Simulated assay, not measured.
Amino acid sequence: MNPVAYAFRLGVDRGRREWLQSLRSSDQWFNFFMASVFAIVLLFQRTSTLAGTPLSLAAATLPSMIAMGVALGGLVGPAGQLSMNREDGTLLRAKAVPQGMLGYLVGRVTQTSLDTATGILIMVLPGIIVVPEIRAVGLGAWLTLIPVILLGLLATLPWGAVVGSIAKSPQGAMGYTMLPMLALVGISGIFYPITAMPEWVQGLAQVFPLYWLGLGMRSTILPDAAAAAEIAGSWRHLETLGVLGLWAVVGFALAPGILRRMARRESGANMEERRQAAIQRGMG
C-alpha cells in the first residue's frame, strides 16, 4: 500500500478510536453541563424578541452557539492536544515513524471533527426542545449547516495547530486560545445582536472568523426576515465565504511550516525537560 495512503488510514482510525475513548471520559460530563447552561440561557431568551423581527432572541442565539462550539473545537482542541502530545512524547514517537507526522495530523483532524460534531449534537437537542422556532426548521436547513461547519473548521484548525506548536505547555496553549476566544464571544454577536454594539466593536469583530461563522450559521437556520437584525440587514454570504476562506488559506499556508520546524526541534532531551516541568507544576 502507498505509505501516504497507509498513514492517512491509520490516522483516521486513530482519531476515531480516541474519539470513542473520549465519549467514556469525564469530559463529556462537562459537555452535558454546558448544554444545560445553554438551555437555561435559551429559556430566559424565549420571551425577548430579536430587534426588527418577530423571532425570539433564543432562536437567533442557538445557531450562534453552534458557531461558538465549532470555533472552540477547531482552535482550543487542537492547541491543547498538540501541546500535551509534545509533553508526553507522542509527537517524538510520530516523528520517528515514516509518514508518522502525517498520520498524527490526520488523527488530530479526525478526532477534532468528531468531537465538534458530538458537542453540536449535545447543544442542539436541548435547543430543539426549548425553542419552538427551531423545531420548525426543516431537514434541508440543517443539512446546509454542514458546509458552514466544515468551512469554520478549516478556518480555525490550522490556527489551533499553530498555537499548540508555539505554546510551551498545555496550560499556555489554553491561555493563548481560551482568553482571546472568550473576548471574541463577547463582541461577535453570539448571545446578543452585534448591531446593538458600538460601531468600532462591530468593525473589530468582523476581522475574526467567529462573527462570520455565527452569521453563516444563522443564515442557514433562520428565515430571511431575521437578516434585518444583522449588519447592513443582509446575510452577506459572499463576505462570509471570503473572510472564512481567507483565514483558512492563510492558516494552512503557515501551519505546515511551523509544525515542521516544531517537529525538527523535538528530541528526547526536550521532552524530558517538559516532563519535569509538568511534574513541578503538579507538585506546586
Results as ranks from 00 to 15, higher is better:
residue 56 S to I: 09
residue 59 A to Y: 06
residue 59 A to N: 04
residue 60 A to N: 05
residue 64 S to G: 14
residue 67 A to P: 01
residue 68 M to Q: 00
residue 69 G to C: 14
residue 72 L to R: 14
residue 75 L to F: 02
residue 76 V to Q: 03
residue 77 G to F: 15
residue 77 G to S: 15
residue 77 G to E: 12
residue 80 G to M: 13
residue 80 G to D: 11
residue 81 Q to T: 15
residue 82 L to I: 11
residue 86 R to W: 09
residue 87 E to P: 11
residue 87 E to F: 03
residue 88 D to I: 15
residue 88 D to Q: 10
residue 90 T to S: 10
residue 90 T to W: 07
residue 91 L to N: 04
residue 92 L to F: 14
residue 94 A to W: 13
residue 95 K to S: 09
residue 97 V to I: 15
residue 98 P to C: 10
residue 99 Q to N: 15
residue 100 G to S: 05
residue 101 M to V: 13
residue 101 M to A: 03
residue 105 L to C: 05
residue 107 G to D: 04
residue 108 R to D: 10
residue 108 R to K: 13
residue 110 T to I: 02
residue 111 Q to P: 01
residue 113 S to Q: 05
residue 113 S to W: 04
residue 115 D to K: 06
residue 115 D to I: 09
residue 116 T to I: 02
residue 118 T to D: 00
residue 120 I to Q: 03
residue 123 M to H: 02
residue 125 L to T: 04
residue 125 L to E: 02
residue 126 P to A: 07
residue 129 I to C: 03
residue 129 I to E: 03
residue 132 P to E: 02
residue 133 E to T: 09
residue 134 I to R: 01
residue 134 I to Y: 06
residue 135 R to T: 07
residue 137 V to G: 10
residue 139 L to H: 12
residue 141 A to W: 01
residue 141 A to D: 12
residue 141 A to R: 13
residue 141 A to P: 00
residue 143 L to R: 04
residue 144 T to W: 14
residue 145 L to Q: 08
residue 146 I to M: 08
residue 146 I to P: 00
residue 147 P to S: 03
residue 147 P to A: 05
residue 148 V to W: 08
residue 150 L to G: 12
residue 151 L to F: 12
residue 152 G to D: 09
residue 152 G to E: 11
residue 153 L to Q: 08
residue 154 L to C: 03
residue 155 A to M: 01
residue 158 P to S: 05
residue 159 W to H: 02
residue 160 G to S: 01
residue 160 G to K: 06
residue 160 G to Y: 09
residue 164 G to H: 09
residue 168 K to T: 15
residue 170 P to Y: 11
residue 174 M to C: 04
residue 174 M to K: 12
residue 175 G to Y: 07
residue 176 Y to L: 15
residue 178 M to Q: 11
residue 178 M to E: 04
residue 182 L to S: 02
residue 182 L to G: 10
residue 183 A to W: 11
residue 183 A to Y: 07
residue 184 L to G: 07
residue 186 G to I: 01
residue 186 G to Y: 01
residue 186 G to W: 05
residue 186 G to L: 01
residue 187 I to F: 01
residue 188 S to E: 04
residue 188 S to C: 03
residue 188 S to K: 02
residue 189 G to C: 10
residue 189 G to W: 04
residue 190 I to R: 07
residue 192 Y to G: 06
residue 194 I to K: 06
residue 195 T to Y: 06
